[in-house]
Amino acid sequence: MDFSSINPVTLIAMLMVAATPILLAAIGELVVEKAGVLNLGVEGMMITGAVSGFAVAVNTGSPLFGMLAAILAGAAVSFIFAVLTQILMANQVASGLALTLFGLGFSALMGQSYTGIVPPRTPKLDFGPLSDLPVVGRIIFGHDILVYVSILLVAAVWYWLNYTRSGRILRAVGENHDSAHALGYQVKKVRILAIMFGGACAGLGGAYLSLVRVPQWTEGMTAGAGWIALALVVFASWKPWRALLGAYLFGGITVLQLNLQAAGVRIPAEYLAMSPYIITILVLVVMSSNRGRRSLSAPGSLGRSFHAAG
């Protein structure tokens, strides 16, 4: 097999771009799940962000406003989920699925007049001569702003969850909501804020697809990215840096299989195309075979509704 025609530097640069939307959505969902809420509506929030960001970017001519709009739209849609599950005590799984279906339909409706329009382009950040450096120039200094934002976000979430008081309160709420409540923490407030943070991240991930990656609006353009983000959170066993690793692995395999084909390497593309999912299943099996839930480090109250009893 001849891999020499594939340049690892460009491969890494490309996979970082391919992984950014799922990374953004996954890091948001990670915080939501750390707070003990399972929101299966990531796909719906992403696509809502994609269409809102696109519409605002087209109307204002500014991709930055588009991204802000996507953040707000994602948070707004997730607020519906927050009201349903935290205040009206609806089932989280069913509400999340409903949110995905709603998002897909709603975005198709909103986007009807935006198909076939070219959005304003998002420029790559200008690092001047740094971008011309060999290797690092392409990998580190050759991207648009959201690639850096996504990495910074991972770092911030990691720091926040582990080293700040509010981050620890969020984790306490996710591990055991009854104890957290007994200690006087406002479980519902924490969870609603977490859900909205997750929605904002998913919305931004969606906007990355419609404004930077493709860039175009088409119905159903997230094409399952939200579900991959959900799988990533489990893959990462709820740890921020592992989510980054997982996202780049997913992105890497997608990009690698296309590059192998383009380079004429004779490898059955089907196997590479399904490999990310196989790896996820394998990781899950390996991790969960080892002392069950503890080693998976799933938040203790994940997916359970909280009702402040007496």
Binding site: S5, N7, T10, M14, A18, P21, L209, R213, V214, Q216, T218, M221, A223, A225, T254, V255, L258, N259, Q261, A262, A263
Partner: peptide, 14 residues
């Protein structure tokens, strides 16, 4: 769209 874009990038890279 995302997959098609990635494929085009890979081809241009080659």
């Amino acid at each position: 769209p995302a997959q098609e874009a990635a494929a085009a990038e890979a081809l241009i890279e080659q």
